Simulated scan of single mutants.
Amino acid sequence: MLALAALKLSHGTTPTMPVSNVLLPPALIGFEHIKRGWDARTRKSTAHLLPGQFYVTRHDEAIYTTLGSCVAACIRDRETGVGGMNHFMLPFTPEMAEQREWGSPAAMYGNYAMEHLINEIMKNGGARRNLEAKVFGGGRILANMTDVGARNVAFVHDYLAAEGFRVIAEDVGSVYPRIVIYHPANGDVLVKRVRSLHNQVIVEQETKYLNTIGKPAQAEVDFF
């Protein structure tokens, strides 16, 4: 179920608050580099995705990201609960055709981000026939550029349709950045459309990554 909710997050506080006496479930092989922590609000381990990253879990964890013109696809096996989320900045580009290394900057592009996410879900126990998808983001927040968000949304719709997956919920387009928290175990998603006060932070973040699209993400920006 998609819930549009106002997340009560105070300025400067991350949603993944580490707690020393809480043991996080082990990350799946290949996802050890993803930042995770304990979220006291959901009482779950929460993975924090940057642009160009994706995360898959077999545990009852949450996955958090912030989106401007980027898109996140949330995909899960509705029977087993194994699932994950990606966060990509641009749709397919032919220049990346040979760059298919797992975890490489190619994952910043939609076609590889989708391919990797679906393959890893199935590798970890998901069945293609049981996969369901929810899609978020694609806001028009980069005023001096073409509508990258609309291109991302069109791409992910076309990709999922071509692969035979039905989108069961989405919140895409418009001019709003979004905070997204996904719970693959049960499929729930919390979405908050961010007030315009915070838009410049996200514009700066996305502009930075667009300018360094050929390099792996190194830094992050938290905002609330």
Score class of each variant (00 low, 15 high):
residue 6 A to S: 11
residue 7 L to G: 09
residue 9 L to N: 14
residue 16 T to D: 08
residue 18 P to G: 02
residue 18 P to M: 02
residue 23 L to K: 04
residue 24 L to A: 12
residue 25 P to I: 03
residue 25 P to S: 04
residue 33 H to W: 02
residue 36 R to H: 10
residue 38 W to Q: 01
residue 39 D to F: 06
residue 41 R to N: 11
residue 41 R to S: 13
residue 43 R to P: 00
residue 47 A to W: 08
residue 50 L to H: 15
residue 55 Y to V: 08
residue 55 Y to L: 07
residue 55 Y to K: 08
residue 61 E to Y: 07
residue 64 Y to G: 00
residue 65 T to C: 15
residue 68 G to P: 00
residue 68 G to I: 01
residue 69 S to L: 02
residue 69 S to W: 15
residue 70 C to Y: 00
residue 70 C to A: 13
residue 74 C to T: 09
residue 76 R to S: 08
residue 77 D to H: 03
residue 79 E to A: 08
residue 80 T to F: 01
residue 81 G to E: 09
residue 82 V to R: 03
residue 84 G to W: 13
residue 84 G to E: 05
residue 84 G to D: 05
residue 85 M to A: 14
residue 85 M to H: 11
residue 85 M to Y: 11
residue 95 E to L: 14
residue 95 E to D: 15
residue 95 E to Y: 00
residue 101 E to S: 10
residue 101 E to Q: 12
residue 104 S to G: 13
residue 104 S to D: 12
residue 109 Y to H: 11
residue 111 N to D: 13
residue 112 Y to R: 15
residue 113 A to E: 06
residue 114 M to F: 08
residue 117 L to C: 05
residue 119 N to Y: 09
residue 119 N to M: 06
residue 119 N to Q: 13
residue 124 N to G: 02
residue 124 N to K: 02
residue 125 G to I: 02
residue 125 G to W: 03
residue 127 A to I: 01
residue 129 R to L: 01
residue 130 N to Q: 09
residue 131 L to Q: 00
residue 133 A to V: 12
residue 134 K to M: 15
residue 137 G to L: 10
residue 145 M to S: 12
residue 150 A to H: 10
residue 152 N to S: 05
residue 152 N to D: 04
residue 154 A to M: 08
residue 155 F to A: 03
residue 156 V to Q: 04
residue 158 D to S: 09
residue 160 L to S: 08
residue 162 A to F: 05
residue 164 G to N: 11
residue 167 V to H: 01
residue 171 D to T: 03
residue 173 G to S: 09
residue 173 G to M: 04
residue 173 G to Q: 02
residue 180 V to T: 05
residue 181 I to V: 15
residue 181 I to Q: 14
residue 181 I to S: 10
residue 185 A to I: 06
residue 189 V to Q: 08
residue 189 V to P: 12
residue 191 V to L: 11
residue 195 R to I: 03
residue 196 S to Y: 10
residue 203 V to G: 02
residue 205 Q to P: 04
residue 205 Q to A: 14
residue 206 E to Q: 13
residue 208 K to A: 14
residue 209 Y to P: 00
residue 212 T to K: 09
residue 215 K to W: 13
residue 216 P to E: 13
residue 220 E to P: 00
residue 220 E to M: 11
